[in-house]
Design a binder for these strands. Sequence first.
DNA 1: AAATTGACCAACCGCCTACAT
DNA 2: GATGTAGGCGGTTGGTCAATT
Length: 257
Amino acid sequence: MVRKEDETRRGPWTEQEDFQLMCSVGLFGDRRWDCIAKVSGLNRSGKSCRLRWVNYLHPDLKREKMTPQEEKLVIDLQKKWGNRWSRIARRLPGRTDNEIKNYWRSYTRKQAQERKRSMSPLPPSSKDSSPPLSTITTDSGTSSESGKESFFDTGGHPASLAMEKTNDEEEQSEKAYSMDDIWDEIAFAESGAITPIYDGLSERCGDFAFPLVDSPALLYADSLWQVGKEESKLLFPLSDHLFSCDEITGAYTADYS
DNA sequence: AAATTGACCAACCGCCTACAT
DNA sequence: GATGTAGGCGGTTGGTCAATT
């Protein structure tokens, strides 16, 4: 079977694609990614659409750099739960597992470098003496039996992970951290105030049975989306200009004014 | 100014799980 | 209960850009 290379697009997303995806999520909600991928006209896989939405387009995402409090929380939770990034991400409203994962990678790399520096006070005689990164990361504690080393395998102790599985419920009621503000934020998020879960949407997709009025993305109209009811259009701020989408025809237009 | 290095980020891959049939 | 499929998750890779040499 020869796979057609142009069947599904890959690589970086364009603004137009972003806009099409936002439009489609606005109409269908952030479920049924295969449907969204099909009906949006995007030549992307459902997985790819989901990832783009979750990691980049979701209105609740924080775009700014992680705060020291958030960084500490990540470190604490990683110590506690290992590399359970999605789980950790749920404790940091507005942050994605990918973001946290990337942060942890940078963090462990820095740690490894600092450790290496402190263990060898003499300056390296030549650049060639620097070990490859994989060697450095081994120092920070890979646990893989297969010898496969990873930047992330620094805190995911198998034993603690096993325990984590059995004590899953227990940990839901864990003691509070000393960072009250963080927990306040978490409590706020868990109270349902930030719940981009689009309940009540029609599950049907093939025959285009979806309730426009209840379109969950419209819930964000105040902050991100502008809804031009008269024109049945959704307006998105993308880059420095607005795109609009006609809900009925699906026609996309840009407003640079 | 050019080359190199390192940090960061976005995206993909493969595996696992839940759910529908 | 078996099977297929979609979604979710963690690991990995590649590109970009800023800092450094």
